[in-house]
Simulated assay, not measured.
Amino acid sequence: MAELMLGLPVAKAINERLAPRIEALKAVGTIPKLAIVRVGAREDDLSYERGALKRCAALGIEAEVIEVCADEATTESMVSALEDLNARGDVHGVLMFRPLPKSIDEAAVCAALAPEKDLDCMTPTSLLTTLSGRGAGFAPCTAEAVVELLDFYGVELDGANVTVIGRSLVIGKPVSMMLQARNATVTMCHTHTLDLAAACAASDVVVAAAGHARTVGADAVREGQVVVDVGINWDEATGKLVGDVDFDAAEPNVRAITPVPRGVGSVTTAVLAKHLVVAAERTLS
Rank of each mutant, 00 (worst) to 15 (best):
A2C: 13
L4M: 15
L4R: 14
L4D: 09
P9V: 13
V10L: 06
V10D: 08
A13Q: 13
A13H: 11
I14E: 02
I22H: 03
A24F: 09
K26T: 10
A27W: 05
G29W: 07
T30H: 12
T30N: 10
P32W: 08
K33N: 12
A35G: 08
A35E: 05
I36M: 14
I36S: 11
R38E: 09
R38P: 01
V39W: 02
G40S: 13
Y48A: 00
E49I: 01
R50Q: 12
R50M: 05
L53D: 02
K54C: 06
A58S: 15
L59W: 00
I61Y: 00
E64Y: 01
E64N: 02
V65G: 06
V65Q: 00
I66Q: 09
E67F: 03
V68K: 01
V68N: 00
C69K: 15
E72Q: 14
T74C: 11
T74P: 05
L85A: 12
A87D: 15
G89W: 07
G93E: 12
G93K: 06
V94N: 00
R98E: 01
P99F: 06
P99L: 10
P101E: 00
K102F: 07
K102Y: 06
S103H: 12
I104F: 10
D105T: 02
A108V: 00
V109D: 00
V109W: 00
L113P: 01
A114I: 04
P115R: 06
K117C: 10
K117V: 12
D118A: 09
D118F: 02
D120N: 08
C121Y: 04
T123H: 03
T125I: 13
L127H: 07
L128P: 03
T130S: 14
A136P: 07
G137E: 08
P140K: 04
E144C: 05
A145T: 11
A145C: 10
V146Q: 05
L149F: 11
L150M: 09
L150D: 00
Y153Q: 07
Y153C: 11
G154W: 02
G154D: 07
E156N: 13
E156K: 15
E156G: 13
A160M: 06
V162N: 01
V164P: 08
R167I: 08
R167V: 13
L169Q: 13
I171Q: 01
K173T: 14
M177I: 06
Q180G: 15
Q180H: 07
N183I: 05
V186A: 11
V186N: 11
T187M: 07
T187L: 05
C189R: 08
T193I: 10
L196G: 07
A198L: 13
A199P: 04
C200V: 11
A202I: 07
V207Q: 03
A210L: 02
R214K: 15
D219Q: 14
A220T: 10
R222M: 06
Q225R: 09
V226H: 06
V227Q: 03
V228Q: 03
V230Q: 03
I232S: 02
W234G: 03
D235M: 07
D235C: 14
T238V: 07
K240D: 14
V245H: 04
A249F: 07
P252I: 05
N253G: 08
V254M: 04
R255Y: 11
I257R: 04
V260K: 05
R262T: 12
G263L: 06
S266E: 15
V277M: 06
V278W: 07
E281Y: 09
T283M: 07
T283W: 12
L284A: 14
L284H: 10
S285V: 14
